[in-house]
C-alpha cells in the first residue's frame, strides 16, 4: 500500500468508528436546517425561496465542524511527527487527509441534502441543482478548511479560531454556490456562469489548500 492510500484508509476508518465524526456532521447539518423555520416561521414560499441558501450555509458550517481535529489529533498522539519525517510529500498527505475527510463528512451531507430539502419545500429541479452545486462546491470548503485546521494545529482552543480563520475565506464559494443553486428556484437566473466559477474555485482550492496547509504545518511544528 502506498503511504497516501494508507493515510486515506486510516482516516476513513477512524471517522466511521466509535467516536468518529462522520455521522455527527450530518446530524449537525440536519439540525441547523431544521432550526431555520423555527426562526423565520413556517412560511413555505419563503422557505422555498431561501432554501438553497440555508442548505449551503448549513453545509458550510457542518463541513468545518469536524475539521479542527483533523491535524490536531495527529499532533497530540505524535503521528504528525512521523508524517512530517516521511518521504511522502506533505502536500499530498494533506490532500489525502482532505479527501478522506470529504468522503466521510462532505459526501454524507450531499446524500442528506435532498431529504432536508423536502422540509424546505424544494421541488425536484431545485433539489437536483442543489445536489450538483454541493457536490462540486463542498470539496472547496473542505480544502480551504484544511488551511485553518493546519494553522490551528497546536492551539488548545483551535475550533473557534478555525471558524474565524476559514469562514471569510469561504465567502466566494458561498456566493457562487448559492447563486448556482438558486438558478432553479428564483426565476430565470443563469446557472452556467456561477457554476463554472464554482468549479474553478474548487479546482483552485484543491491545489492551494494542500500547499498552504502543508506550509502552515511545517511552520507550526518547528
Amino acid at each position: 500500500m502506498t503511504p497516501l492510500a494508507a493515510i486515506l484508509v486510516r482516516d476513513m476508518r477512524i471517522a466511521i468508528r466509535v467516536g468518529g465524526g462522520a455521522l455527527i456532521g450530518v446530524l449537525f447539518f440536519v439540525v441547523v436546517v431544521t432550526l431555520i423555520p423555527f426562526a423565520v416561521g413556517p412560511d413555505l414560499p419563503l422557505l422555498k425561496r431561501i432554501g438553497p441558501a440555508i442548505l449551503w450555509l448549513a453545509a458550510l458550517l457542518a463541513s468545518l465542524l469536524a475539521l479542527d481535529r483533523l491535524f490536531s489529533s495527529d499532533h497530540e498522539d505524535g503521528s504528525l511527527d512521523l508524517i512530517l519525517m516521511s518521504r511522502a510529500p506533505l502536500e499530498l498527505v494533506v490532500l489525502a487527509k482532505g479527501v478522506a475527510h470529504w468522503l466521510t463528512t462532505g459526501l454524507p451531507l450531499i446524500v442528506a441534502a435532498p431529504l432536508v430539502g423536502l422540509l424546505l419545500n424544494l421541488d425536484a429541479p431545485a433539489e437536483l441543482t442543489l445536489v450538483v452545486t454541493l457536490l462540486v462546491g463542498t470539496p472547496a470548503l473542505t480544502f480551504i478548511g484544511l488551511i485553518g485546521a493546519a494553522i490551528a494545529v497546536t492551539l488548545q482552543r483551535g475550533g473557534l479560531l478555525l471558524a474565524v480563520i476559514v469562514l471569510p475565506l469561504t465567502v466566494p464559494v458561498l456566493i457562487f454556490g448559492v447563486a448556482a443553486a438558486n438558478a432553479a428556484v428564483v426565476g430565470p437566473a443563469p446557472f452556467g456562469t456561477p457554476f463554472t466559477i464554482l468549479c474553478a474555485l474548487t479546482l483552485a482550492s484543491l491545489v492551494v489548500g494542500p500547499f498552504a496547509a502543508a506550509a502552515a504545518l511545517r511552520q507550526e511544528m518547528e
Binding site: V30, T34, L119, N121
Partner: peptide, 22 residues
C-alpha cells in the same frame, strides 16, 4: 399537496427524531 409542512405536530415529531439521533 406537499411532502412537508411546518405544522406543530409534524415539527415536534421531527424534533423527536433529531433527539433520538442525538
Amino acid at each position: 399537496g406537499t411532502y412537508w409542512v411546518w405544522d406543530a405536530r409534524l415539527t415536534s415529531e421531527l424534533v423527536l427524531f433529531l433527539l433520538y439521533l442525538a
